[in-house]
Design a binder for these strands. Structure first.
Length: 231
DNA sequence: CCAGACGTTGTT
DNA sequence: GTCTGG
DNA sequence: CCAGACGTTGTT
DNA sequence: GTCTGG
């Protein structure tokens, strides 16, 4: 799955990489090596009005369905399964109209061991290429103050490819450039054209290595979390 | 009809 | 065990 | 995802 | 909001 990741890009880098036309930020997010659910994350989405434009903003990681009474029932929906995203009430309308991309450098997975032990791994593309996670977002309005909108996001997961299945059976959907363009095209409403994008990334070209347990705690942050450890 | 769920993951 | 917070 | 809390009362 | 279960 994907419950923790690395995001160190600056807004300027994201604007260039994703051909963003409009930046909508209160303040830039700092570089983070331990991004966790409930935290604000960068999101690239297509603003529809007055005309389609690619927009960079921040949203809360952990999708809050619009019908929720409270904004924060725990972490919210941090992942959405590709296999069921077209039919689940929590995600169906977002699949049609609120697709987005969550930029990342790399991500963390925990391999289950005997006796309930959990060994964390870092997963990155060989050569350091960045990752575009497929996401869905949702606006939420507090009934008491509907003028304020909370935007939250879920990362779509799929079956792990054979390489990553060594560590974990699920992985985030990682979009290549053509898939990303299709995913962010607001004219695409047919799930039949979208679901084929939500497949496991090719198994070649990944680096996977065990890291220390410091990544377990969200209080720890820094590039040292990526240092290889015995595993 | 109304009430209640609506999500994923992992672990046992 | 289960929920909340990060 | 993992870590850490999980409760009430009264008094300062 | 919308669907499912009773």
């Amino acid at each position: 799955m994907c419950g923790r990741y690395v995001s160190t890009a600056t807004p300027e880098q994201l604007v260039a990489e994703y051909h963003v036309e409009q930046v909508c930020l209160d303040a830039p997010l700092p570089p983070r090596w331990n991004v966790a659910p409930t935290q604000p994350v960068y999101v690239v989405a297509t603003e529809r009005e007055p005309e389609p434009r690619r927009q960079l903003g921040t949203m809360r990681w952990g999708l809050v369905p619009s019908w929720e009474k409270r904004a924060t029932p725990g972490a919210g929906l941090i992942n959405a399964r590709a296999e069921t995203v077209a039919t689940r009430p929590a995600f169906r309308s977002a699949l049609r109209r609120r697709r987005c991309v969550v930029p990342a450098d790399s991500f963390w997975e925990w391999r289950a061991g005997p006796g309930g032990s959990r060994q964390p791994f870092a997963i990155a593309r060989r050569g350091g290429a960045t990752l575009a996670f497929a996401g869905l977002w949702e606006p939420w309005r507090d009934p008491a103050s509907p003028e304020r909108v909370l935007r939250s996001v879920a990362i779509i997961t799929t079956a792990a490819n054979r390489r990553l299945a060594e560590v974990h059976e699920r992985m985030p959907v990682v979009l290549d450039a053509p898939a990303l363009d299709r995913w962010l095209d607001p004219g695409t409403l047919d799930p039949g054209l979208l679901l084929p994008l939500l497949v496991p990334a090719p198994e070649d070209g990944w680096e996977v290595w065990p890291v220390g347990a410091r990544v377990n705690s969200v209080a720890n942050d820094g590039p040292d979390l990526l240092e290889p450890a015995a595993g």
